[in-house]
Computed example of a mutant assay.
Amino acid sequence: MKLRLHLFEFEDLPWFPKVIRAGMMDYLRFMITALGTYRPIVPLLLGALRHTGQSRVLELGAGAGGGTAGVLRGLRAGGLPEARICLTDLYPQPTAWQPLQAATPGLEFAPEPVNALAVPAGLTGFRTIFSAFHHFPPAAAEALLADAVRQRTGIGVFEGAGKHWLELLLAVSVLPVAQLLITPFIRPFRLSRLFFTYVIPLIPLFTIWDGCVSILRMYPPEQLLALAHRADPAGRFSWQAGKVRHWWGPEVTYLIGVPVEGDGVRK
């Protein structure tokens, strides 16, 4: 699917109720973790870290932290035992991040809001953004990549879909049923999550809309590369984009940029 429509997502709206946003993020974290969505990109990320000599990952737009613990375990098992990941977000979720930190060696988080378009110089590490790059319209997406180039730190963009029409069909059929079935098992337990799923089903309804819009807003690999080259007109980074597939079918779309030889890397 080449079509890209930048429709609105409810979770992006500043007035959107925090309790509904948190319920949606909890569901997304649970599904990404349970399905191992980002397991196929671990070798790509590991290679980028080795290329840049970095062991610390700075995750932007982390949401509820879905899949991060699995990626970190994969990096450590893949030959980088000193790997660390720091979660950041414009809307920090320390309530969701603290249990992950307690259960995952090497996982940390920044409690203050972090703007992915202008990351504070004190927050160092190889930048990643999982399941969130599509939230940025082209000008902002380009600015996000340009900030990484300006600060000479590598960056990886990963979206947990391949942008296919079948994924839209799943988002309105199978996944809502799965959400109703798994919600009682999502931790930490919250009565508000049950109330807004089964009594007033705002969480599943908004999840269906945002899930479909996320796919429509995704940048395919060729558009990711075009954004990267506009963000890096001097060619200070080496860029690659594409898709990797799970053994059981689903795809992950990615863009990775690392400084070219001799350009230097911020640790």
Rank of each mutant, 00 (worst) to 15 (best):
L166Q: 09
L166P: 12
L166Y: 14
L166C: 13
E167M: 02
E167T: 03
L168E: 13
L168M: 13
L168F: 14
L168D: 15
L169E: 11
L170K: 06
L170Q: 05
L170W: 10
L170F: 12
L170M: 08
L170I: 05
A171C: 12
A171Q: 06
V172F: 12
S173W: 06
S173Y: 12
S173Q: 09
L175H: 05
L175K: 07
L175C: 13
P176V: 01
P176L: 02
P176T: 02
P176D: 01
V177W: 11
V177P: 11
A178R: 07
A178P: 07
Q179C: 08
Q179G: 05
L180V: 07
L180C: 08
L180P: 04
L181W: 13
L181V: 11
L181T: 10
I182M: 03
I182A: 03
T183W: 01
T183E: 01
P184V: 00
P184F: 01
F185L: 04
F185R: 07
F185I: 00
I186G: 06
I186N: 03
I186W: 05
R187K: 06
P188D: 08
P188E: 01
F189I: 09
F189C: 09
F189Q: 08
F189T: 04
L191D: 15
L191W: 15
L191N: 14
S192Y: 15
S192N: 13
R193M: 03
L194D: 04
F195Y: 14
F195S: 10
F195W: 12
F196G: 04
F196D: 05
F196Y: 09
T197I: 01
Y198R: 07
Y198N: 03
V199L: 15
V199D: 14
V199E: 14
I200A: 11
P201K: 10
L202G: 13
L202V: 14
P204R: 08
P204C: 06
P204M: 04
P204H: 04
L205R: 07
L205E: 08
F206G: 02
F206Y: 12
T207K: 06
T207P: 08
T207C: 07
T207Y: 09
T207Q: 07
T207D: 04
I208P: 02
I208D: 00
I208Y: 07
I208R: 03
I208H: 00
D210F: 11
D210Q: 13
D210A: 10
D210R: 07
D210H: 13
G211F: 00
G211L: 01
G211W: 02
C212Y: 09
V213S: 05
V213I: 12
V213R: 00
S214H: 11
S214I: 09
S214K: 10
